[in-house]
Amino acid sequence: MSWLQLSLDTSEAQAPILELVFENLGALSVTLGDAGDQPLLETPPASEQLWQHTRVTALFEGSQDQQLLQQALGQALSEELLNSLCWERIEDRIWERVWLEHFKPMSFGKRLWVCPAGEQISEPDGVVIQLDPGLAFGTGTHPTTALCLTWLDSQALTGKTVIDYGCGSGILGIAALKLGASSVIAIDHDPQALQASQDNAVKNGVADRLATYLPNEAPADKADYLVANILAGPLIELAPQLIDHIKPNGHFALSGILTEQADELAQRYRPFASLDPVKQLEEWVLISGVNRKNG
């Protein structure tokens, strides 16, 4: 079976943005590598140091409509970046091994870990999420995911209900369940993301407490917690609907937001909520708060 691989060389600052663009267009995996010859010293878990010249490589299913994908990229990328894209067909067996070389155990908050399937950690009190390649896009390496995982680790989730809106690999919903949540509703517009979430929930022994839905099929349930790691535009547009999914005095966290978008997004949610201080990692932020809307 063949796969469609896209790659381009970019700056350290642009690489995380391109990573998120590819993920939101349905990439099965996105890897970042050295496009020059710059050695990096080992960095602490959950930190992300990139190369000054970074190669961003995204993998899509071979059945992906290349023309439609190119049209979508044309709306998201500058003409210069679009013209520098390298398109390639590759065999299935190659990318899984390459992807695993870049995926090492990572820690978030005080006790949460994300590890490649089969790897163990030495922390006796660690809460471990196991992921492997396949459909497991969204592994915690992107700053927005790291912000959400750290936030979840700081919450009192035992016995609580959670909505993971824009679930991707299901990593956030699975983290919530491993941290004590009683149930998770995972919502995504991409059927592949729902399949990835279900598969990863099975691998982590929490499938009986995670239900997946397309947005137009999701129940109208209100949850104690909601986490949405998508993009600022949809977060602004969906604000009333997302708030309506949260119980009064329930908690939420929103990410996929660049620092320059934080003020606009905060203004959108302030009429409904009490907002916490903004959390920032690199050029990305997380906005969290408590729903003050009654009923």
Rank of each mutant, 00 (worst) to 15 (best):
L179M: 04
V98C: 12
D37H: 11
T150V: 01
P219M: 06
L59T: 14
N249D: 13
I171G: 05
Q261D: 00
K203H: 07
L275M: 01
V98A: 14
K104M: 09
E237I: 05
E19M: 05
Y165W: 11
G256Q: 02
P116A: 11
L4P: 09
N294L: 14
A262Y: 00
S169Q: 08
C115W: 04
P124L: 05
T158L: 14
N83L: 13
I174V: 12
P215Q: 10
C167W: 09
P45M: 03
L149R: 06
L32F: 09
P143E: 04
L41S: 13
L265P: 01
K110Y: 04
K160R: 15
S197K: 06
L172C: 05
D244G: 10
R97Y: 12
F103Y: 14
Q198S: 13
S84A: 14
T158R: 13
R111P: 02
G62H: 11
P248C: 06
P44I: 07
I230C: 05
Q71T: 15
E101L: 14
I236V: 03
D208E: 06
L50V: 08
I243E: 02
L18W: 03
I121F: 09
L152P: 05
L157Y: 05
D263W: 00
L69G: 13
K160E: 13
Q130G: 12
D34K: 03
L4W: 10
I243V: 13
V184G: 08
T141K: 09
P234M: 01
Y269N: 00
L18T: 04
T259D: 04
L40T: 10
Q192H: 14
I163T: 10
P215E: 10
A193R: 08
E260A: 02
A211H: 09
P271A: 04
Q5H: 09
G134C: 03
E282I: 08
Q75G: 15
A146C: 04
G118L: 07
W113C: 08
D92E: 15
Q267Y: 00
N294K: 15
E79W: 02
P277D: 00
S63Y: 14
P191G: 11
D132I: 02
T43V: 15
N24P: 00
A35G: 10
L177V: 08
Q261Y: 00
L68K: 14
T10Q: 07
S2Q: 10
G126D: 05
A146M: 02
L214T: 14
T150M: 02
A146Q: 02
D65N: 15
N294T: 14
E264A: 10
F252D: 02
T144M: 01
C115F: 04
P44D: 06
E61Q: 15
E119F: 12
S154Y: 00
M106I: 04
D125H: 10
M1K: 13
M1I: 06
P105C: 01
P215V: 11
Q155V: 03
S47C: 12
Q52K: 03
I163E: 07
L254H: 01
